[in-house]
């Protein structure tokens, strides 16, 4: 009885919540544009390789390093051709897939593992917490370059291994945040009430604590997505990340570097894609930090009434 009455308002509330959230997004123009840009890049990542995969690998030595903004070779060469005469625009769109796959995979893996151990460290006693935190310290101080090289030589270069390397280096971020939040949330009244009412540990953690800290984690993950993307491109740039024939934007920058003198656009465009994506993620994360925080949400909501 009490369950059925409780469920209905919640679902209505969620619908209202979603449309209110969209409204808030529309009101912050920077965040709105960022969201659109990210949707386009996601579309590139999902459909790009299927649509443009052949174009992106078709070599044409007569079009080597052909300059940008020259439509005589067709619109696909609008950003120029690379050192093997492949159209840069097509390669950018195709490279979106592995770039996004690595970043999304690493962030998701680090988020899940970090949040899991963070919940344990925050909820359980001092001993478990100490062990987990000291391990996180060691991971944080381990040189990520060495880790990348070890994985590259031992397990071989591939996208899953790249995700592994980046996820390991990012786990401590989520772990520390989750633990700090849990330590605070578990002292609050509603958690105490759940304990008194005899809720199981599992239920307390999953139903009462996790939903409260989830918005923080999602905001950090958005910000971290940009960071991981930059880290991946740095490793690929140094030659210890993704290896050809796979392509990511970072690898394209590194492949264009020898031609800086004669063909700047080889390294410029993929770098610009990284900047645009990271910028959008940063702007969106700034908006999310306010929008998902009940204490600060009024900043976005009340603007309508003050405008009117």
């Amino acid at each position: 009885m009490s369950d059925s009455t409780a469920v209905k308002p919640v679902s209505q509330d969620q619908n209202k919540g979603a449309s209110a959230l969209l409204g808030m997004l529309w009101r912050d123009k920077f965040a709105f544009v960022s969201a659109i840009v990210l949707l386009i890049i996601m579309a590139f990542a999902i459909f790009g390789p299927a649509l443009l995969g052949d174009l992106a690998t078709s070599q044409n030595l007569r079009g080597r390093n052909s300059p940008p903004f020259d439509l005589s070779r067709g619109w696909i060469f609008v950003l120029g051709g690379d050192s093997l005469g492949r159209p840069i625009l097509a390669r950018l769109i195709v490279a979106a897939q592995s770039t996004m796959a690595v970043a999304a995979g690493a962030v998701a893996t680090a988020l899940v593992i970090g949040a899991f151990f963070g919940l344990i460290a925050g909820y359980m006693g001092k001993t478990a917490s100490q062990i987990i935190m000291r391990l996180a310290d060691v991971i944080m101080s381990f040189p990520s370059l060495l880790l990348a090289v070890v994985v590259l030589y031992v397990l071989g270069p591939s996208i899953p291994n790249m995700i592994l390397v980046l996820a390991i280096t990012r786990i401590p971020i989520y772990l520390r945040t989750t633990r700090a939040e849990v330590l605070e949330v578990r002292e609050r009244m509603f958690v105490q009430a759940a304990v008194v009412m005899g809720a199981s540990h599992r239920r307390i953690v999953l139903r009462h604590i996790l939903p409260v800290i989830a918005p923080t984690l999602i905001t950090i993950a958005t910000l971290d997505f940009a960071f991981v993307m930059l880290a991946e491109s740095s490793l690929s740039f140094l030659g210890i990340g993704i290896q050809p024939p796979s392509i990511t934007w970072g690898l394209m920058v590194s492949q264009g570097r020898p031609y800086l003198n004669t063909a700047w656009w080889l390294a410029f465009w993929p770098g610009l894609m990284i900047v645009i994506t990271a910028l959008s993620l940063n702007l969106l994360s700034n908006w999310m930090r306010v929008a998902l925080d009940p204490a600060q949400r009024w900043r976005l909501e009340s603007r309508k009434s003050t405008d009117a």
Partner: peptide, 22 residues
């Protein structure tokens, strides 16, 4: 601050080389 958080340093370095050195 946004540029610092969004632009990879190798890309800024390359653009700087193209502009200021080349």
């Amino acid at each position: 601050s946004l540029i610092g958080a969004s632009a990879p340093d190798f890309w800024i370095a390359i653009v700087a080389i193209v502009v200021f050195a080349i």
